[in-house]
Design a protein around this nucleic acid. Structure first.
Lengths: 346, 346
DNA sequence: GTTAGCACTCTCACGAATAGAGTGCTAACA
DNA sequence: TGTTAGCACTCTATTCGTGAGAGTGCTAAC
């Protein structure tokens, strides 16, 4: 396939930009009038004919204007991301006002992003894979229940109630707490293997069953996160784009959003295919999720140190405002990296 | 307004039932064929004419069949709920498999209900208003952070990280813990007033600022719940009903669902207007939420003892399967009451 | 290489025509 | 008096055809 010369590039850009704005097929006359090329519509037509042959644009029908093909978008995106480096958008730090709970930060972020872009957005909590235990505490809550609190690096807190037949005395409690902390502290959740467990139980003596329960609790609370927490927002923004909002498509898309199952595969795909910037753009069929073949999907990953990472993504029409979206994701990515990496003390 | 005689009642029922199934206006011929009245279509027409005059049914246009009016639905519902007492539906206890976390139970319930009914569903967590403190525990997690764990009756656990300049020694920690527990235990969150606080701080001495932080934490974690946690499911079921799924309406409805703000008003309404069965049916305009004037809404409240209660609701087309829905809600209500009321030990 | 002009194509919006469904009314019947 | 058959009437939804508008491709001239 031939390279595009400068004029063709300009025309292609003009077409795409125009289409991004209006959502209508754009004709030769429009380009000739609104671009700074000073070419007649006829000339534009010739060039457009070429561009179509090369696969960058498409005619929905014989006498309509042209719209960008997936390849065209791809070209535009690759071009854009290479050359643009716009100033930081209005996503301010005001959202990070000491909300300790990650869950809440995520919800805020995803909502903010949806409002900012007018597209549907999603974010996943960092997966706790390989995360390390930092602190464990057992407390007697009432006669029949012990509360186990588990804190991991990154200050994720998990609670679990453990039923017991009879209350434990303070001394035993203290001993168990010390035992648990000395044995498990600093271990990643995968490093707690049968050997560790056996030794633990041995040392716990008659209370080994409580240890079992605690470990179950640890395992359970991890498991619970393994099925991936995904927050979404702005799903109804889909209705703002006619090309997506006929009953059939909208229904499928929003279902995909609700189910979150499909989003998960998106996430996995993103995590595996890393890139320099950490931002990926899927246009149409490129998307790992079939339901979204009429959309574009932009994703970014953010880090929580220690190899833990989450994904944030935007789903919109192919004619999405890539510049704005990529920008938004870039800055968000940086900010999320900061929030979660730093010991929150700062 | 006159009472309906038996024949009119039968015909009205036939009309409504038929419409519930098909969603199409139903004509006189249909009724005469499929009901056991053995009347000709002409007779039916006469009766229908009467029913229309009385306001129970409506003609969408001159030469269409009839559809139930809001009043008609109301009659049907009132009739139905009074006389029906069907066997328990398939909602089995399998959903209650020792999931300690309320949040998860709720999510499961709402999802199950959506699957079961094919309507959009919502559920709120019980509000913690008037809930009592049962247990408080501070622990030193690392050099700069203390973890406060607060357990209330009903075993709701809240965590809060508190930053400190320098670590506290064990003894102080112990003292603070004892102080907090003896002072606050058994108090409802409203009973912790300035007097209590002042006394607490006095006793804490130089560590009074930590007490402040803990109390802030308590307040914050309550506040957080005050803006009402609502889980939803099956929003896209809306697309299954043509009369709701044109782009405009569907968009509004799903937005309402996403925003959850509007659902909140639904909840409040429900909580204030209690009824014998605890189940309320809003048809069309009766709904407290304007967005839902083309829908019917069925809500139920469940209890968690001590005056705490949550709401569960179903939103669907006016022609929803009221029998099934009410049944489902009834059994769910009972089961939720059971789950949450019992001390979980069992 | 660029442009003007023109015939051609395709979509979309509009209106007319038609089939179908259902009613209301009248007259006859039990 | 209640029920029924029959028929004219009304309204909707669908189909078809038409015309306007937008945009193209091609040719010929600059």
């Amino acid at each position: 396939m031939h390279e595009l010369d400068e004029r063709k590039t300009k025309i292609l850009n003009a077409i795409i930009r125009n289409y991004l704005e209006t959502g209508e097929p754009v004709g030769s006359r429009t380009i000739s009038k609104y671009s700074d090329l000073n070419l007649s519509s006829a000339t534009i037509r010739n060039e457009m004919s070429d561009l179509e042959e090369m696969g960058y644009i498409i005619q929905p029908h014989t006498s309509a204007g042209r719209i960008p093909s997936d390849l065209g978008y791809r070209f535009y995106v690759d071009n854009l991301i290479a050359q643009k480096d716009k100033e930081v958008t209005e996503i301010k730090e005001f959202m990070i006002e000491r909300t300790e709970k990650m869950e809440q930060v995520l919800k805020q972020v995803v909502k903010l992003l949806a409002n900012n872009t007018n597209y549907a957005t999603m974010i996943t909590a960092p997966s706790y894979h390989r995360n390390k235990v930092k602190f464990i505490q057992l407390s007697q809550v009432d006669e029949k229940q012990i509360l186990a609190v588990i804190v991991t690096e990154g200050n994720i807190v998990k609670n679990k109630m453990i039923p017991v037949e009879e209350p434990l005395d303070n001394e035993t409690m203290l001993k168990l707490n010390i035992l648990l902390n000395t044995s498990l502290n600093g271990l990643s959740l995968e490093e707690i293997n049968l050997v560790t467990i056996a030794r633990l139980k041995e040392q716990a003596g008659i209370h080994s069953n409580i240890i079992s329960d605690v470990l179950d609790a640890v395992a359970a609370s991890i498991q619970e996160d393994e099925d991936l927490q995904i927050y979404t927002s702005g799903a109804t923004n889909i209705f703002k784009y006619p090309e997506l909002s006929d009953s059939q498509k909208a229904s499928e898309l929003i279902s995909a959003f609700e189910e979150k199952q499909q989003l998960a595969s998106l996430v996995n795909q993103t995590l595996s295919g890393e890139e320099e910037t950490g931002i990926q753009v899927y246009i149409g069929d490129e998307s790992p999720v079939a339901t979204m073949k009429d959309c574009s999907v932009v994703t970014a990953t953010y880090e929580l140190g220690e190899g833990m990472h989450g994904t944030i993504g935007i789903i919109g029409p192919k004619r999405m405002d890539y510049e704005n979206v990529v920008d938004n994701l870039k800055t968000l990515k940086v900010q999320l990296d900061n929030i979660f990496k730093k010991p929150k003390g700062d």
